[in-house]
Design a protein around this nucleic acid. Sequence first.
DNA 1: CGACCCGTTGCAAAAAATGACACACCCATT
DNA 2: AATGGGTGTGTCATTTTTTGCAACGGGTCG
Lengths: 303, 303
Amino acid sequence: MKHLQTFRLIEAVARAGSMRRAAEDMNITASALNRRVRRFEEEFGSELFERLPGGVRLNPAGELLLHHYRATLSDLARVQGQVADLTGERRGHVSLACSQALLPYFLPEQIAAYRAEHPRVTFGVNVRDRAEAEQELASYASDLALVFEPIYLVDFEVIQIVPQTVHAVMAANHPLAQKPELRLRDCLNTPHIAPPSRYGVRHLLDFAARKGSRQFSPVIESESFEMIRHYVLHEQMIGFQIPIGLRDPGDGSLAFRPIAARDIPAGNLILGQRRGRSLPVASARFALRVAAALKAQYGPEIV
Amino acid sequence: MKHLQTFRLIEAVARAGSMRRAAEDMNITASALNRRVRRFEEEFGSELFERLPGGVRLNPAGELLLHHYRATLSDLARVQGQVADLTGERRGHVSLACSQALLPYFLPEQIAAYRAEHPRVTFGVNVRDRAEAEQELASYASDLALVFEPIYLVDFEVIQIVPQTVHAVMAANHPLAQKPELRLRDCLNTPHIAPPSRYGVRHLLDFAARKGSRQFSPVIESESFEMIRHYVLHEQMIGFQIPIGLRDPGDGSLAFRPIAARDIPAGNLILGQRRGRSLPVASARFALRVAAALKAQYGPEIV
DNA sequence: CGACCCGTTGCAAAAAATGACACACCCATT
DNA sequence: AATGGGTGTGTCATTTTTTGCAACGGGTCG
């Protein structure tokens, strides 16, 4: 949308921290960029940047304006979605931030099913930890977030919430695979591999261990759940994951067992959006679908 | 704001129903206007108007876009207000739609008091009946509405609500002025003057009369509460008004008496805004002040 | 001090928007 | 059937706006 060009430039300047660099990014000269910014500031009635030796930085007024721009952009996208809807085109774009556990099975299935119905809808999937995901929503960088055990929950509007019991993941021949359910002490007494503490699963493990005056000390710490899942096949070790990220590979190599709820309470997997925002049509419908799928597969009550 | 010029033009076309007329209104030629509209439609990806012989009319896409424009405009005004706030200027504009009863005493006092603190804030006061007031909010024509007995209440967010008992207004020498409280039948059996049925007071009177199998039939019907208040001094007749619009003139000429609550239940005077909208700073603060004043003067609980 | 990067400004060239006019169309009078 | 007034929309010269280039002044760092 051409009429927002000035805003795009302002955002670029804010991001680059320098007019000349931003000018290069946007493929115009620094003088043209500078004049546009100055002219807008004059019209707007207030400067948007602090001019420092060495560059510029947004001032509070600039922050507010940029926020307005993002909100406008998001609303415009919603309108365009609605218009596409009534011309029957059904195009659109869905962007979401999610935890890693959703990547192997759940999201691919959901997205594929949705795209089978609406082939012209495109997707952007960003993997984020729990804190980042909420940041994404706040800045309108993502329409939806699907995260395990989010932290802040301000400006975060819950669409669907399902419980997820932490499971231990191990090779099928691991001794603990004999038991139908593991106790926390089983896990702590055997070598384990886990993600860093900014992830929800680890957070629950740490918390539970502290409660039992024990300490959770993984031999290997990795951000990648895929790495964890594969590593337990190479060394007698247990990893951790939530059910939505687990499925039997079919070759009998992997086993996973729930950890007793009295040791580690079930965590929450939450689908949410920015509070008070009205989503583009495509995102809203996708959210409905995902919410229904979550409820059907993992909902607290059996239907 | 220059970047919204195209939207302004589109709105003008929608209002005028014709490109040529809109062009004249906006002081440009029809060809220039037409090209801007067409270019925007192309960029937007959809036509905004139905082209009819004899003019144009907004299509659904156009309606949606115009709504986006108004929302954007309102959000921008809010941002400018906040910016003015942090530069300490404290400027702004408050627009409100209200019932007539607020005009003689309540609003002038409130506005004057607010302006004493913030002289650079300007006001727009639009007198509207209950249906129109909500329409004003929906179209962003007013920030606030202060109406007696609003009707629809969809997209209407209540900020403060206070009860108002219908009062009879009459000359001090009217026989009924002897009684401390009037019954509905007293009113129906004496000549009366009242506003048309789209006003809240009349609505309550009609409703109460029907419930008692009587009919409310005013000798004079007038939209102007001021007219009603003055007329009862010239002929032995009773008028109706709510307390917030009544104050003893001091010369002992006028009397007002409540009508028994068992005959006519108290109606609601409601201060509200458009649902989900974040108001400009000045409007939000004024709303707070008005809400507090309403509660203090007419709140259900005595403090 | 000189090299470098910063935002900003004057001026001419390029690009975009505009106004005036013409055209095709529809509809109600004539 | 012709006509006149209304509509939206193209064309093209003209005006306005925006841009790129080069230069300037000021700050930091080696």
